[in-house]
Design a binder for these strands. Structure first.
Length: 546
RNA sequence: GCCCGAGUAGCUCAGUUGGCCAGAGCAGGCGCCUUGUAAGCGCCAGGUCGUCGGUUCGAUUCCGACCUCGGGCUCCA
């Protein structure tokens, strides 16, 4: 902008008003083609547009440019009635009068060409739809997503908070949030135990030599908290668990008979995320990976990847996710380590695993890490948003750097292949995604409070407590809300707290050993349910993870 | 880290175009009410108006820096 001025949100109103004028004028869009020479004259005052023209002329062809100018030697641009001209491949609608159902949303910075080394420009975000109803639907979906915001719900449901004195991206877990987390972790541990994993533990800090050997100080230093000096020794807080698991592997001699060896740890790691990137539980600076490292032979890579993928999908299904998509990232064009045969073996192994599991995937050419190819697995939540959770990464680098070995059937020493696997990704992030997926209404098996018993009046208090006592003895999480407030208010509190079952007990129930069940999501109360029947019902619900 | 914006009670928010003791609802505490299905009534307590500087007779309000948060970019579990 002239004089270094910037746009702010207040300018959006004026811009939107001007847009409505242009739309009302129904100006036709005209498409023109020009030679690069002519185009340069036309956009002589536009530094960035000249850059685009120059790159096109130089024959550089990448997807980003393809959206802005046509290929072949010519440059296309559009002009409308009041003389506005801009580069574009098109197509455009015939005239401005065809538009109209739009909303300008926000102003934000964006690096030129998406590169943080380039200058930052401003971008104005808007959305446009074919009809006013479509636009309204879209805006409603944004409101719905906002209602599910895990930061809002975590506060309202008293699950987690982010006290200022801790620092950005660092949370404390309140009793209810911690209870849900414990259930999640217990389930994870149980599945891993059944799935042939060995559990390991590792400390939060290690001497610099570990990170030098692993290479993290070379390629991951900017993501690590700064060094701690103690007794002349330098320590680092761990950003990843893998080097520790390597230490466990290296603690003894390994035979091919031991492989695959699968180490599992809920390992807390700390990463120095950019301050602008931190986002509630979804992106924090301290988080707990459900991290596994698998050491196997080359021959085992394909089958191991297939079983890892099956295992991951099976665990995710238990948490209510049933739609998956994956990205398969292949060898980067620039620097990478490892033999071609290994890359091919691993990449094909990943592809076959995805195909066998019938998970739709896209191939991201060259998007793999320098040390190996990977699969990133997304789940779709209840309102259709995709969340990346699981990552499976094959690593040819660490076994080499640490000189890992196993003794083969031939009696010789061989290098194992290492596979990194985070299933939920991070427990914190997974919890945040679950909150948004369930809109805070956790299914009974996860709900911190499964049942709340409300005596109609004080005289029913003893009965309410006896019902709660029986439920509690059966292993359910239950509380009693005494009759200090009117029943309606207490029912409302229970509903607002998203308790799966709010039980009302009064004189009829005392006589019949029954409860009135207000199941979350039901139209109304169900009266006179025998306590024994309710317990069976709840047990089924928990068992089925509904 | 960068661009734009925001910080008022535990939560959600009013408000002060610079000036008397800064407000409400919910939540909390204490009473009353004893309740059959989504907010009963009253009282009380709770705020260095994010922090530190500056301008001013006077700053929660204006200016600056910093901190934190939000939306993006980059990055990513």
């Amino acid at each position: 902008m002239p004089g270094g001025a910037t746009f702010s949100d207040e300018d959006l109103l004026a811009i939107e008003a001007r847009m409505r004028e242009v739309i009302a004028a129904d100006q036709a869009f005209e498409r023109h083609e020009a030679t690069p020479r002519e185009a340069q004259d036309l956009f002589a005052d536009h530094r960035y547009k000249l850059e685009i023209i120059e790159r096109v002329t130089a024959g550089e062809d990448d997807s980003e440019l393809a959206g802005e100018v046509s290929d072949g030697g010519s440059v296309s641009y559009y002009q409308n009635g009041d003389g506005f001209i801009d580069l574009c491949t098109g197509p455009h609608v015939a005239s401005t009068g065809r538009l109209g159902h739009f909303a300008l949303q926000k102003v934000a910075g964006a690096y030129w060409r998406g590169d943080e080394r380039q200058p930052m420009l401003q971008r104005i975000y808007g959305t446009a739809w074919a009809t006013g109803a479509d636009l309204a639907d879209y805006l409603d979906r944004l409101v719905e997503a906002d209602k599910r915001d895990h930061r809002r719900l975590a506060t309202e449901l008293d699950l987690v908070s982010w006290p200022e004195p801790l620092g950005p991206g660092l949370a404390v877990w309140h009793p209810k949030g911690a209870l849900v987390r414990k259930i999640i972790e217990d389930y994870s541990r149980a599945r891993h135990e059944a799935g042939g994993y060995d559990f390991v533990f590792s400390p939060h800090i290690a001497k610099s030599v570990l990170w030098e050997t692993s290479g993290h100080l070379d390629f991951y230093a900017e993501g690590m908290y700064p060094a701690m000096e103690l007794d002349g020794v330098t320590y680092y807080l761990k950003p990843m668990n893998c080097p520790f698991h390597v230490m466990v592997y290296q603690s003894g001699q390994r035979s091919y008979r031991d492989l695959p060896t699968r180490y599992f740890e809920l390992g807390a790691v700390y990463r120095y995320e950019l301050s602008g990137a931190v986002h509630g539980l979804l992106r924090s600076r301290g988080f707990t990976q459900d991290d596994a490292h698998i050491f196997c032979t080359r021959d085992q890579v394909a089958s191991e990847l297939a079983s890892l993928l099956d295992f991951s999908v099976s665990v995710l299904r238990a948490f209510g996710f049933d739609e998956f998509q994956a990205k398969l990232s292949t060898r980067p064009a620039e620097k990478s380590v490892g033999e071609d045969v290994l890359w091919d073996l691993a990449t094909e192994g990943l592809r076959e695993a995805l195909e066998a599991a019938e998970i739709p995937f896209t191939v991201e050419e060259g998007a793999g890490a320098f040390y190996g190819p990977k699969i990133d697995l997304d789940v779709t939540d209840a309102i259709g948003r995709a969340w990346q959770l699981t990552t499976l990464q094959v690593d040819f680098n660490l076994p080499d750097r640490f000189g890992l070995e196993y003794v083969g059937a031939d009696g010789g020493r061989h290098q194992p292949v290492m596979i990194h696997r985070a299933l939920m990704g991070s427990v914190e992030r997974f919890f945040g995604v679950l909150i948004e997926h369930y809109a805070g209404a956790f299914p009974s098996w996860l709900a911190p409070e499964q049942v709340r018993v409300l005596p109609v009046a004080a005289e029913h208090q003893a009965y309410a407590e006896s019902v709660a006592g029986r439920l509690s003895a059966a292993g359910f999480r239950v509380s009693v809300d005494a009759a200090d407030e009117p029943l309606g208010k207490r029912v409302r509190s229970g509903k607002v707290a998203k308790v799966p079952h709010v039980l009302v007990v009064g004189g009829d129930d005392v006589d019949g050993d029954t409860v009135g069940d207000n199941a979350r999501g039901a139209d109304g109360p169900e009266r006179d349910v025998p306590v024994a029947d309710f317990m069976v019902r709840l047990a089924d619900e928990v068992e089925a993870r509904r």
